[in-house]
């Protein structure tokens, strides 16, 4: 069974002849409990897809369904859409309200779950902080008092609070240090096992995507050029562009060699 279905999605910016086709007839499917990775260089249309799926943008054509329900239409009430889909953003510095404490931010999300009792919400927030491996005392902190990695954990907790059917994660580790990235990836991997999350995981780094995703879709100039099981995509790419992406992943195995200057003009 699929959790998320994107069908013939097209997004145009501008009108007429000068219009830019950012997403061009894209089909994607996230299995229930599965993680689909979406890779491609910046400008290829990944974030546009994420925003449409999350309901922050309307598509020019095509449909997005979660659990069989169309989430692109205007008729879906906001609270219901909230429980179908949530998004985690790239920059944890700008995705948290600087004027709300961590506790308030998470409780806000619990309220979206129709949790009306304030005491229950506070307890819920504490549980969620624990789930993302943060101390309960973090609830009183403001975002500026936390490190980048901690903020991203808060953003993940906010998303989990709603228990959405599908999570869209857009470049959530690319603003983080290499060493912090590892702990966020570990967290998502554990949460996936614990909670059976269904996720669309977007990154420009194939090594990062491969670590979490069962299947990978490769995007280039608004189109999906290849889709398949992660290890096949990485170790036996069929499309030329996929091979370029594989070659672009910096690797310690290349340290001290001239691989960098050897390939490509």
């Amino acid at each position: 069974m699929s959790a998320l279905d994107v069908t013939d999605l097209t997004v145009r910016f501008g009108r007429g002849a000068g219009a830019l086709v950012a997403v061009d007839g894209v089909n994607l499917r996230v299995e229930s409990g599965g993680v689909l990775g979406l890779v491609g260089e910046s400008g290829s249309g990944k974030s546009t897809i994420a925003r449409v799926v999350a309901g922050l943008r309307r598509p020019s054509a095509g449909t997005v369904t979660v659990d069989g329900r169309d989430v692109t239409g205007r008729r879906l009430p906001a609270r219901e859409r909230a429980r179908l889909i949530q998004m985690i953003f790239q920059d944890p510095y700008s995705s948290l309200n600087p004027r709300m404490t961590v506790g308030e931010t998470i409780e806000e999300a619990l309220a979206a779950r129709e949790e009306q009792d304030a005491a229950a919400r506070r307890a819920g927030a504490r549980e969620l902080l624990d789930l993302v491996r943060l101390k309960a005392t973090v609830a009183q902190a403001y975002p500026r008092q936390l490190s980048g990695g901690m903020r991203q954990r808060v953003a993940i907790a906010r998303c989990l609070a709603v228990k959405p059917k599908v999570i869209v994660a857009d470049e959530i580790t690319s603003a983080l240090d290499a060493s912090v990235q590892g702990s966020v990836l570990n967290l998502l991997r554990d949460l996936r096992a614990e909670l059976g999350l269904s996720m669309l995981f977007i990154s420009h780094n194939l090594a990062v995507v491969r670590y979490l995703a069962d299947r990978i879709a490769v995007m280039h100039h608004g189109r999906i050029v290849e889709e398949g099981p992660s290890d096949e995509i990485v170790h036996a790419p069929r499309h030329e562009y996929t091979a370029t992406l594989v070659g672009a992943v910096p690797s310690l195995d290349n340290a001290g060699t001239d691989v960098l200057t050897r390939d490509e003009p």
């Binding site: 906001a78 859409r81 998004m87 700008s94 995705s95 948290l96 004027r99 806000e108 979206a112």
Partner: peptide, 22 residues
């Protein structure tokens, strides 16, 4: 244009609350 307001919108936070709290 901020992502924290986008996140609030995705949570289904009411417009009034978006205005007063964000």
């Amino acid at each position: 244009g901020s992502e924290y307001l986008a996140a609030a919108r995705m949570l289904g936070v009411s417009r009034r609350r978006q205005f007063t709290r964000y």
